[in-house]
């Protein structure tokens, strides 16, 4: 359980800088290059103002209050007020604050449950968490193969974090960090891309650590070694495509789901037909399913690298059924 907490802390530390840096320029470029976009720019505001300043939900107000309260703290590090404002604008965006809330909640829960671990399972939330950890460990063993439990802390924390992020958008007033978008700004891609990058870096780390550097490089060379001029570029492109496809799949599924719910709720206000109610239950299911898909694909990437370990390179099934495509 303590390993789970540390991996969560690592996730948090790894995810935030990516979001803070890439949130603005990434999404801002397409709007700036199109000549017909002056009106949209006016809508989004100028200079230091960010798009989320214009939305007046309760959660956005709370984020703005947090931002204003934190400005003196940034000044204490010796930053100029403009620098402090720029950084605070990135760090206290609603979806980043939501990420912090989910991570903090998970950490507090883990610490609480660890304190209550005992010989007999508890009958409250501690028992529930124990059951979840048990089943996630079993899932990791099933997906990676025998001996896969040692990756369970990482895989399980990915699963729990992604599930809670997907479900957060179903609570009125909150947003899901994995699926939020505002107009042209596909903000959720920041979260999903950083998650996918962390997962892929972990996969390669495990591959080098467990299978050895030689076996890892032989994976790129491919089966008939004299085909290496073809195989190496193909494998490198495949490895680059993996995090991108992981991130886009998660973001597209959750973002599309939230958009559909949004439109169905508007239809409910117009026509009094509560179409969004069955869709909400379906969204609970798909939120869980997408977390499962993300972690299962990560597991099968790990398994694909680990199958080279030890035995000869005779078997051609190094990729398994799921990793044949990126």
């Amino acid at each position: 359980m303590s390993a789970l907490i540390w991996v969560l802390a690592f996730l948090l530390a790894a995810a935030q800088p990516v979001q803070a840096v890439s949130a603005v320029p990434d999404a801002g470029e397409p709007a700036a290059t199109v000549e017909m976009e002056e009106h949209a720019d006016a809508d989004h505001g100028h200079g230091a103002s960010m798009p989320w300043h214009d939305q007046h939900t309760v959660f956005n107000r709370v984020c703005l209050l947090l931002r204003d309260a934190s400005l003196p703290a940034f000044g204490a590090f010796g930053m100029s007020p403009e620098q402090a404002e720029e950084i605070a604008n990135s760090v206290f965006q609603p979806f980043v604050v939501m990420t912090w809330i989910i991570c903090g909640g998970l950490m507090v829960l883990s610490l609480y449950v660890r304190k209550r671990l005992g010989r007999v399972p508890q009958k409250d939330i501690a028992g529930f968490v124990e059951m979840c950890v048990d089943s996630l460990r079993g899932f990791t063993r099933g997906a990676i193969g025998p001996g896969g439990e040692e990756h369970a802390p990482f895989i399980a924390s990915l699963f729990v974090f992604i599930t809670l992020s997907n479900w957060a958008g179903l609570i009125p007033g909150l947003i899901s960090p994995t699926g939020v978008s505002e107009g042209d700004f596909l903000l959720g891609l920041n979260t999903t891309l950083s998650l996918a990058l962390v997962a892929i870096i972990y996969v390669h780390y495990v591959a080098i650590r467990k299978a050895g550097l030689k076996s890892y490089l032989l994976h790129f060379v491919g089966e008939p070694w004299w085909l290496f001029p073809v195989n190496i570029p193909i494998h490198i492109v495949g490895e680059v495509a993996r995090p991108v496809s992981l991130a886009f799949r998660l973001f597209g599924n959750i973002g599309g789901e939230d958009k559909v719910l949004h439109f169905l709720a508007i239809i409910m206000f117009l026509s009094a037909v509560p179409l969004h109610v069955p869709m909400t239950f379906f969204a609970v299911f798909t939120g869980l399913l997408q977390a499962y898909v993300f972690t299962a694909l990560t597991c099968s990437y790990i398994a694909g690298f680990l199958e080279h370990q030890g035995d000869a390179h005779g078997n051609d099934t190094h990729a398994g059924p799921a990793t044949a495509q990126a």
Binding site: P30, R249, G255, Q290
Partner: peptide
């Protein structure tokens, strides 16, 4: 388990189209 993973892989193509839709919509 394999069915769910392969369905997700097939689905991701549609998801890419959905992302293109989001980009064009703006």
């Amino acid at each position: 388990a394999n069915l769910i993973i392969s369905l997700a892989l097939i689905e991701s193509i549609v998801i890419y189209a959905l992302l293109v839709f989001f980009l064009l919509q703006g």
